[in-house]
Design a protein around this nucleic acid. Sequence first.
DNA 1: CGCATGACCCAGG
DNA 2: GCCTGGGCCATGC
Length: 116
Amino acid sequence: MVSAPSPLYRRIYSVAAQIPAGRVASYGQIARIAGCGARVVGYAMAALPAGGDIPWHRVINSRGMISPRADGDTARQRRLLEAEGLRFDRAGRLDLAAVGWAGPAWDWLEANGMAP
DNA sequence: CGCATGACCCAGG
DNA sequence: GCCTGGGCCATGC
């Protein structure tokens, strides 16, 4: 048996579950919505059960990079994101302005009716 | 209840 | 652009 996550963790998971495919959100962004510290979001992700329905791979740090995970398998997260059409630059970073959840560039496109 | 740990963030040099 | 130090706060022993 597995013990149920705390209410705070469920809020964090609930927020993460709403990130659309093809976009990413930072820990701090989720933390602000869930009402907790950014560090707690990372802690919640580390405690996430494998095989769940939470798109944990769409959660990255504020620099647009994949944070070193407890499992150490950052390559898997990168493959999952690339499978959704995301592109990493030479430094292994994503363009948050373009693919960030409600990023400025995306907002501009929507405001002008140019969003896909 | 104190202490250590951690998939973070921001400001400064 | 990189590295450093401080702040953040829940969880487990």
